[in-house]
């Protein structure tokens, strides 16, 4: 075909038609009309509550004290000087830290095992990821049933295994109750680590391992020289996701220990919930939420910055 044919057809289409003043205005601003619903929705559902909560944290919004007077930093003060609040923050940090660390190690080990193909792999894989689909409330309930004295089978089985009477209060005795909370979390979330790490592992070119094998590199060295550097971004991603989720730990606490005994298992979320919705100190809870948000943001910033820094290999 001759190129001129194309040109003349373009010419036939002609220049864009001239528009009237209003049409021009509409043409230029129509895009705003299109995004307006989404913007309004975000403003209404996300920005407004956020700003409102900021206001609430500086005024009196306590259901037991009438009026909405401005109280300055008083609400924040109450949280900062509340020993339960400090304990809950500390508990949140190490409980989520330990849970996520265990989930990471277990998830990595399972992923390393499952990356090879063997008969029955598909079935085992499906079973492994089942916990991910179960509501945390159900998971908490199930573990309670398994552990709780006197009807849970755990103590009975331990008794049989150890040959001596075991009477542990898994939901009431320190340190066992932390143990129970960690077990429930690990059981539910290890599959998450496993799935992400497995995806990372399958993306490593098998040639690298073959070349290493020919080089006489052993499995341990190959793990350090090949697996780890290739998997590092995925590891960081999985850890970030999991940690962000774990520090908001609430549902299993709510079901398994109810924060007890006393306030021993108050996590940050559980503490804020109690202050706000069982004691109705709403403004104090809101102030606490803002403080917690700042802590969380610090952690997130560190992790995400690290995540963005990892270079592609």
């Amino acid at each position: 075909m001759q190129p001129t044919a194309t040109i003349s057809r373009l010419k036939a289409a002609g220049a864009p038609p001239r528009l009237s003043g209003f049409a021009q205005w509409a043409d230029r601003h129509f895009k705003w009309l299109l995004v307006a619903p989404a913007v309004l929705l975000i403003l209404a559902l996300s920005v407004y509550p956020l700003l409102f909560s900021l206001v609430v944290s500086f005024i009196n919004y306590d259901f037991q004290v009438p009026g909405h007077a401005f109280v300055g930093l008083k609400n924040f003060e109450r949280v900062v000087f509340d020993p339960v609040a400090r304990w809950s923050l500390w508990l949140t940090a190490w409980l989520s830290g330990i849970s996520v660390a265990i989930e990471f190690v277990l998830g990595l080990l399972v992923a390393l095992t499952m990356v090879r193909s063997f008969p029955g792999r598909g079935v085992i894989m499906s079973i492994l990821i089942v916990p991910l689909f179960i509501s945390p409330v159900i998971v908490g309930q199930a573990w309670t049933l398994l552990l709780q004295r006197p009807f849970g089978p755990t103590n009975y089985i331990l008794t049989q295994l150890l040959g001596q009477e075991v009477t542990i209060g898994w939901m009431t005795e320190s340190p066992w109750l932390y143990f129970s909370l960690i077990i429930a979390d690990v059981w539910q979330w290890t599959p998450f680590m496993f799935v992400i790490l497995l995806a990372g592992l399958t993306a490593i070119p098998p040639n690298l391992y073959e070349a290493a094998e020919l080089d006489g590199v052993n499995a341990w060295q190959a793990f350090w020289a090949i697996t780890l550097p290739h998997l590092a971004p995925m590891m960081l991603l999985a850890l970030t996701f999991r940690l962000l989720d774990a520090i908001r730990m609430f549902d299993t606490i709510f079901i398994m220990t109810g924060g007890g005994p006393g306030t021993r298992t108050y996590t940050a979320s559980y503490y804020l919930y109690t202050v706000g919705f069982t004691q109705f100190h709403l403004s104090q809870a809101t102030a606490g939420s803002w403080l917690f948000l700042i802590f969380t943001a610090l952690v997130v910033m560190l992790l995400v910055r690290r995540l963005l820094k990892t270079e592609p290999v």
């Binding site: 070119p205 040639n207 690298l208 073959e210 070349a211 020919l214 080089d215 090949i226 550097p229």
Partner: peptide, 21 residues
């Protein structure tokens, strides 16, 4: 024999280098 014990070296199409070394 395992590959490492055959005393052979192989060069691959996609180089297969260790990325962080």
């Amino acid at each position: 024999f395992r590959p490492r014990d055959r005393d052979v070296a192989m060069v691959f199409q996609d180089y297969a280098l260790y990325p962080h070394m």
